[in-house]
Simulated scan of single mutants.
Amino acid sequence: MSTRIVAFVGATGGAGTTRLTVESAALLAATGRSVAVFDAAVQTQGLAAYTDQRIDADVTALLTGEADLDATLYEMELDGPGVVNLCPAWAPFERLARAKTAGAANRFEQQLAAAAISHDAVLIDTPPIGGNQAIAAVNEADRIGIVAPDTNRGRDGVALTRERLADIGVEDDAVIANRSTEGLLDTDVRVPEIEATDASSAPSAVPADEQFTPAVLEIVERLVGVDPDVEIPDSGRLSGLFQ
């Protein structure tokens, strides 16, 4: 698998983009791959909840040139042969503001490319398109997935996101309906609800279950470009992951 940079773009706030980005990374790590996950949603800082480590240097320090890439990566605690390195946002307002400039966005693109050299995959937790970081994320990405709730609001959000992507000359590669129960969205992947939604319960896709894991596998196949070969027995254990 050649390194792929993938932007998971929230069509609305609260779409569950951060969780699906982390779940996809964890499933890739279960195959022995190394994955970097970047937080482009610096305002909400949701990715920080997925590490128990003290965050000294974060992605905003990276974007403002106050820290290098290695200093801003925090390994997620996982069982398995691979690794997930998180680059979360955890910063005071003053640095958040400086990290939102056009110059910081250019640096973001450079650092994403640098991370792709040292990792098998780079995933970006991207907020609704509207700021410099989000634009940098989709500009640098090889593939783009739109994450939306399976609601009328989500459907409207997908349409708006596609308009904004078109404005900057890119288009999505998949639409992911998260917490899908109604079937309202015209979508490529439907992800069912999971019982535990707090960050401490992640990942839920590993060990496998019979509904959530196959949906995450489909996301990984479509956006990261791997060919999954997965057996999900009744016991809910992974057997024979990716070839």
Rank of each mutant, 00 (worst) to 15 (best):
I55P: 01
G130E: 09
V216L: 12
L63Q: 10
V9C: 12
D150R: 05
N152C: 08
D56W: 00
D70E: 12
P149S: 15
V216E: 10
S24F: 01
A26G: 05
N106T: 07
G169I: 04
T3R: 07
S118Y: 01
N139W: 03
I124S: 11
T213V: 08
L47K: 03
R179E: 14
D209F: 01
P203L: 13
L96F: 06
W90P: 00
L241F: 08
V83F: 03
R164I: 05
L78N: 08
V22N: 10
L160N: 09
N106A: 15
G16C: 07
I129Y: 02
G183T: 04
L185C: 11
H119K: 05
E195D: 12
D229Q: 11
A177S: 15
A134Y: 00
I194R: 11
P228A: 13
D229C: 05
A105Q: 06
V35K: 06
V206P: 01
D209C: 10
D79M: 10
A29D: 09
Q243L: 12
V158Y: 04
T213S: 15
V189F: 05
M76G: 13
V122F: 06
A61P: 00
T31V: 04
A208C: 10
E94D: 15
A91V: 09
A102H: 04
F8V: 04
Q211Y: 10
D186A: 14
A41Q: 08
T51K: 02
A48P: 00
S200W: 00
V158T: 05
V147T: 07
A196M: 02
D229G: 08
A26Y: 01
A49I: 00
R54V: 09
V138S: 06
I144V: 11
I144H: 05
A67H: 02
P214C: 09
R153G: 12
P233K: 12
N85H: 07
A49C: 03
A61C: 10
R222W: 03
L185N: 12
I176A: 14
M1I: 07
A177T: 04
I168L: 13
G14W: 03
G14D: 13
V35N: 07
A215P: 05
A208Y: 02
L69H: 03
R222A: 14
L217K: 02
A36M: 08
G130S: 06
R162P: 02
I232M: 12
V59I: 11
A91S: 15
